[in-house]
Design a protein around this nucleic acid. Structure first.
Lengths: 230, 230
DNA sequence: ATAAACCAATCATCCTACAAATTTGAGGTG
DNA sequence: CACCTCAAATTTGTAGGATGATTGGTTTAT
């Protein structure tokens, strides 16, 4: 039994909760355009002010997006992304990288312990995509394949909280420093580490997988320090 | 130059930003009671609706707290805590523990690399507090000293993002499972790991510190699995 | 067919009014 | 004086109306 935190919930909070439920349940998917304020007022049986306060709260949380004259659209299914992005944007790059690597190292260990054969197949596929993009020096394709590979590692952990946090940290990182795309450029070291990571996970060798991430981190830190000296 | 995301910011967003600034700058510290809506309307020169939408957004973010008839108070300086707590409350305990341990392992490594002599002093102090509480079997004091110790480890990393995330994960963990307080009860294993962790950091031995966290994690996972079988 | 003008839908802001919860303080009582 | 009672003032919560600004589509004129 979940009592409403010592007293009854305000109307605004009730509307917020109902909208969140509609989004999380998938009734309103990302991109969906919500009914107009008038219709929502009738649907929830609240006044304009109450409805607008609820919507404004969700807009600020990053779940909704409103545009005058156009309407309100579902923007995301989780409020974590916006909160993390705001916080990360105020951090130094090195701090953010260290946190992301903390998640990645754990992901590598858990993936090695829990990966299925399907996971290994996906990892090898994305690794191959990386190699092909690297061979033709297609930086854009490489960056995409690189992200897919790392997210496949996270996915193999079966830990949805970890998957989501890693994804949000990666997004926040990329949106805060577009100029450092070279961090995910194709290099021999990068390739060697990718292979060690994937094969470590395939062999269910936690230590090898974690060590690959360690090397990746040391490599990035080195790259970053020389990059900042310029 | 930071243009306001392709068009001018709405009045509500401007007010939100100003209030956030007042909180982050420390002008309004946690616990401070905000001026009444009337006064804030004059201060920001906006209507009551606009002001209320801004306040409601910050309430939902976890920065403010309103109580009818009483007023509005500052609740936190960061919106991350509330977002994390919401997300963690929907996760399984094991998932949350794995993420927290990812952060803790990285914290142990970085602390070993960067700790000052003052950090070592604090760590040994809190370790001693743990021992004393353990000696007299004072569970409450032990839990507090335990938290202080782990946060001191995070603090020694000098990575404020990591510190904040670890703190929020710990809070979310504790508020979501009050019934598992025994996780931080005093045991010999617990003490042995604490000592290994602190001494590893003092000796600037990253591997030893990380290994201590690994052992702690294995111990907790074991405890958890037997606890769930009951 | 193209471009300009128009129009309907929608969100943004402001206003007033009243309800509900809390705090404050005046006045009475021992 | 200390303490209780209760009404008034303060403060947030909810309702409803009015107007402005922006967008997207439609119509109209060339």
């Amino acid at each position: 039994m979940k009592i409403e935190r010592t007293n009854r919930m305000s109307l605004v909070d009730q509307v917020v909760l109902q909208i969140e439920e509609l989004i999380e349940s998938g009734t309103w998917t990302v991109g969906t355009r919500l009914p107009s304020e008038m219709e929502l007022m009738e649907q929830f049986d609240v006044s304009r002010n109450t409805l607008r306060e609820a919507i404004r709260a969700l807009v600020h949380s990053g779940l909704l997006q409103t545009k005058q004259g156009s309407g309100t659209h579902v923007c995301s299914t989780s409020a974590l992304g916006a909160a993390i992005e705001r916080r990360v944007s105020k951090s130094r790059l090195q701090e953010t990288l260290e946190v992301r690597h903390a998640l990645e190292r754990e992901a590598a260990r858990l993936a090695a312990a829990r990966r299925s054969e399907e996971d290994v197949g996906r990892l090898r596929l994305y690794l191959d995509n990386c190699r092909q993009a690297s061979a033709v020096r297609n930086q854009e394709a490489y960056a995409e394949a690189d992200i897919q590979l790392h997210q496949a590692v996270a996915a193999a952990t079966r830990n949805h909280l970890l998957i989501e946090l890693y994804e949000h940290m990666t997004e926040a990182l990329h949106s805060s420093v577009r100029n450092l795309v070279e961090l995910s450029f194709c290099t021999d070291v990068h390739e060697y580490i990718h292979e060690k990571l994937v094969e470590g996970i395939a062999a269910q060798n936690e230590e090898a997988a974690a060590e690959a991430v360690n090397e990746y981190m040391a490599y990035l830190k080195d790259l970053l320090s020389t990059s900042l000296e310029e």
